[in-house]
Computed example of a mutant assay.
Amino acid sequence: MESSSVVKALAALAQASRLEIFRALVVAGEAGLTPGAVAEALGLAPNTLSFHLKELVHAELVSQERAGRNLIYRARFERMNAVLAYLTDNCCQGQPCAASPTSTACPC
């Protein structure tokens, strides 16, 4: 992953509403959420939500799919994992490591 893509993704998440939207989509998993469900859950106005969803789609952190009359938004887990991998790529002085899910520190 190129640094410019990581910067775009992090910039999209560097706004409180977009971060909350993304987290809600992560929780929803593969089922995704309609804009109405996101707006209701987070208390966002439809026009504000639309703007933030567009930014997340542009950063390739969220996908959009039409299902009949509805749009379904889903977190792109592979993209999120690629950003996280980029950020932790050189931990442990460049040596491979497996950080423990219960620890915030690298085990090296």
Rank of each mutant, 00 (worst) to 15 (best):
V6E: 00
S17H: 13
R66I: 11
F22E: 04
G29N: 02
V26H: 06
V27R: 15
L25A: 05
V27F: 09
R66V: 14
G43H: 05
L33E: 08
A24G: 03
I72M: 08
I21L: 08
T88V: 01
E40M: 08
A67S: 14
G43T: 03
E30F: 05
E78T: 13
N81W: 10
G68Y: 04
V27M: 11
E40N: 09
G32W: 06
A14C: 09
G68C: 03
L56S: 01
A45M: 07
G36N: 12
E40T: 11
L10P: 02
G43K: 01
Q93R: 12
A59E: 05
A24M: 06
N90F: 15
G68V: 02
L19D: 07
L10T: 03
A11W: 09
T48G: 08
H58W: 10
F77L: 15
E40R: 12
I21W: 03
N81T: 08
M1Q: 09
D89H: 12
P35G: 10
L44T: 03
P101S: 01
H58Y: 10
V26C: 13
T104F: 15
A45N: 11
E78M: 06
R18E: 06
E60W: 09
L53S: 01
L84P: 00
A31Y: 10
A59Y: 05
A67N: 11
N70G: 07
R74I: 05
L25G: 02
E60C: 09
Q15V: 14
S100H: 12
P35H: 04
A59S: 07
M80L: 15
S3G: 05
G36C: 06
E30G: 11
L10N: 02
A24I: 04
R74K: 13
Q93L: 11
A16G: 07
A16P: 02
R18F: 06
A28E: 07
A14L: 09
P101A: 04
T104R: 15
E65A: 14
T102A: 14
A11E: 15
A9G: 09
Q64P: 00
G29L: 04
R23M: 11
S100E: 09
S63V: 06
T104P: 10
S4E: 13
R66C: 04
N47L: 11
N90C: 13
K8N: 12
C108K: 02
R18G: 02
K8G: 09
G94V: 05
S4P: 05
L42I: 02
C106A: 09
A11P: 01
L25V: 04
E20L: 14
Q93I: 06
A12R: 01
A16W: 07
S63M: 06
A98S: 07
F22T: 01
A67D: 13
R23H: 11
Q15N: 14
A105Q: 11
S3E: 12
L87T: 01
R74S: 03
A24E: 14
Q93H: 11
L49W: 07
N90L: 15
L61K: 00
G94N: 02
I21T: 06
S5I: 07
L61G: 00
C106M: 05
K8R: 15
L56R: 01
S5P: 00
P96N: 00
